[in-house]
Amino acid sequence: MRRGSGSVAAMIIVCIVIGGAGCASVISQDLLQRADRTIRFQDLREQPGLYEGKIVLLGGMIVSTKNQPAGTLIEIVQKPLDFEKRPISGDTTFGRFLALYDGYLDPAIYAEGRDVTVAGPVIGLREQPLGEITYSYPLVRAQEIHLWAVRTEDRAYPYPPGGWWGYPPWWRYPYWGPWY
């Protein structure tokens, strides 16, 4: 065995860890550090005035995108975020919020049903019609916004290729597929 092979392996591991840490978030580290992660969406929705000016990190599914003179206004159904800061698929939500982006975003790209993560300060409350009611939306100025790729893990794969002979019944997708 060669001398020094352990130190080469250690250097490779350190490079992987350091390199991966820089790509770990879709929102800049500066904004993540300034975000108040203790603010729950339920509290923000009930008393947005208490949190005006505080930076929040929110995510969800886009309902609509409208370009206005003040910027692009995105209506979002709030969803909890996972460890990657991606909205978790499912029916869990505590309401809706609006994100105001200071530039132009194409509604064909930022389309209904896409997942998005937004970071920026709370700028108040906006009431607008939602169906036949008036809904109070927390309003966030989107300093950074990340549009997620369309999910593909909802595909149905009943068994691994070649049938399930010899595999236990629990051996199904996503257990044998890529981890997200």
Rank of each mutant, 00 (worst) to 15 (best):
A99R: 04
L130P: 01
D106K: 08
G124S: 03
R114E: 10
D102E: 15
Y104C: 00
A111W: 02
L100C: 03
L100R: 10
P129Q: 14
E127R: 13
P107A: 11
V116N: 06
P121G: 10
I123P: 00
D115K: 09
Y101N: 05
I109N: 11
I123V: 14
G103A: 11
A111Q: 12
L130F: 14
V116M: 01
G103H: 09
Y110P: 04
D115G: 10
L125N: 08
G103I: 07
D115Y: 14
E127K: 15
G120I: 00
L125P: 01
P129A: 13
V116A: 04
G103W: 02
V118L: 07
R126Q: 15
R126G: 07
G120R: 00
R126W: 09
I109H: 11
Q128E: 14
L130T: 09
V118S: 12
L100M: 11
P107Q: 12
Y101E: 07
V118I: 14
L105A: 00
T117L: 02
P107R: 09
Y110V: 03
G124A: 05
I123R: 05
D115L: 11
L105I: 05
G113V: 06
E112Q: 14
D106T: 05
E112C: 06
I109P: 08
V116D: 02
D106V: 04
E112K: 13
G113D: 08
A111H: 05
V122D: 01
L125E: 11
E112D: 11
A108E: 14
G124P: 03
V118H: 04
R126K: 15
V122E: 04
I123H: 03
P129D: 12
Y110M: 03
R114W: 04
I109S: 12
L130E: 03
R114K: 15
G113A: 08
D115E: 09
L100P: 07
E112S: 12
G124Y: 00
D102V: 13
Y110T: 00
L105H: 00
D102G: 15
P107H: 11
Y110F: 15
P121R: 07
G103L: 06
P107L: 11
A108T: 10
G124K: 02
A111I: 02
P121T: 08
Q128R: 15
L105R: 09
I123W: 03
T117C: 09
I123G: 00
V118K: 01
D115W: 10
A119Y: 06
A111M: 03
A108F: 10
D115S: 13
I123C: 04
R114H: 10
D115M: 08
Y104H: 01
G113C: 08
V116S: 08
D106I: 09
Q128L: 14
E112Y: 10
L125F: 05
R126H: 14
G113I: 05
Q128A: 15
G113E: 06
I109T: 13
E112F: 12
R114S: 14
R126V: 13
E112N: 14
G120L: 01
Y101I: 03
A99E: 06
E127W: 08
V116E: 00
T117M: 02
A99Y: 07
T117P: 06
R126E: 15
R126N: 13
L125W: 05
P129G: 13
A119L: 06
P107D: 11
L130S: 09
